[in-house]
């Protein structure tokens, strides 16, 4: 007579395994890849979805932190990994910060180098080089906007091995400064730009993405909270107006009551919770990427 063994299978371990398996990512991560050998800071992490047989669209992810030390690419690693899980090849970059050569235009040049590196390695990464978007938050939102608008400016053209870079094909700028003259005179800003707006007005102008807006700029999604004390939502409003004026497709995603690093959650302020973290913003970002650089295969 057969003995029923099914009762001997413990139920809790099965559930645990199910949870583990369903939470396992099929994304492969390659870490600390140098994209400009001249600077030790210039490394990136690549998050690759499974091979699809056809090139995938890609997203260049740029962290914030006031262009200075303290916040690094790990802050946006969850975004990079989740976008890869959604089907995009993502590249999460580090760049030189102000105490270490990142003073304008250093950080901008580094980001252009990273973009050039991505395009140069598109084939080996399974990326379509004509479908690369950028996603950045705060200072990263500024840098990604520069990658969308300032590629023609010789003042920020990189001299790295990968060469100069064409603009991004789409830009998602979360709480990104677009007009540097609107920023408060915080040390991080004056350190990045080498002085106050009265001392170096020409640098403030050149470092402002809005200065470079021109016909042919890639589509922009501007995300921000209207209670952001660090980067006012005015930056997004002005940038949208400038981009609209030259016929660039631009979307504004504004969070009522949203701050720079806090947002509402169940009737409370939650920190850290940026404006690109909310489920609504995530939906808008993914839809924008699908619409501009195409849905992943």
């Amino acid at each position: 007579m057969a003995v029923a063994h099914s009762r001997t299978v413990p139920r809790i371990p099965t559930l645990v395994w199910l949870l583990v398996l369903t939470s396992c990512s099929n994304v492969v991560e390659q870490s600390d890849i140098p994209y400009d050998e001249r600077y030790s800071a210039d490394v990136l992490d690549v998050y690759m979805p499974p091979p699809a047989g056809v090139p995938r669209p890609a997203v260049l992810v740029i962290h914030g932190g006031g262009w200075t030390e303290g916040i690094y690419r790990s802050s946006l690693a969850p975004h990079a990994e989740r976008l890869a899980e959604a089907g995009y090849v993502t590249v999460n970059i580090e760049y030189r910060l102000t105490p270490h050569g990142g003073q304008f235009p250093g950080a901008v040049k580094d980001c252009f180098c990273a973009l050039a590196w991505l395009r140069a390695h598109a084939e080996s990464l399974g990326v379509d080089p004509t479908k690369i978007a950028g996603l950045g938050y705060s200072a990263g939102g500024h840098l990604v906007s520069m990658l969308g608008t300032a590629a023609a400016d010789p003042g920020v053209a990189p001299d790295c091995a990968a060469g100069p870079a064409a603009p991004l094909n789409a830009v998602v700028s979360g709480a990104g400064p677009q007009d540097m003259t609107l920023l408060l005179g915080a040390t991080a800003v004056t350190d990045f730009l080498g002085g106050t707006k009265d001392q170096v007005p020409e640098v403030y102008a050149e470092a402002s993405p809005i200065t470079h807006v021109a016909v042919g700029d890639p589509p922009f999604l501007l995300v921000g909270g209207d209670n952001d004390w660090f980067v006012s939502i005015d930056h997004a409003h002005l940038m949208k107006k400038a981009l609209d004026a030259v016929g660039t497709e631009t979307r504004l995603f504004e969070i009522p009551g949203g701050g720079h690093i806090w947002n509402g959650a169940d009737g409370q302020w939650e920190l850290p919770l940026t404006s690109i973290d909310t489920p609504e913003a995530q939906a808008a970002i993914l839809d924008f990427l699908d619409h501009t650089i195409g849905p992943p295969p």
Binding site: A86, Q268, W269, L271
Partner: peptide, 15 residues
């Protein structure tokens, strides 16, 4: 979410 992978996060709250 319907399109993005699920996401677990934590943080400080003030009410």
């Amino acid at each position: 979410a319907t399109r993005m992978p699920d996401w677990t996060r934590g943080g400080f709250t003030a009410g």
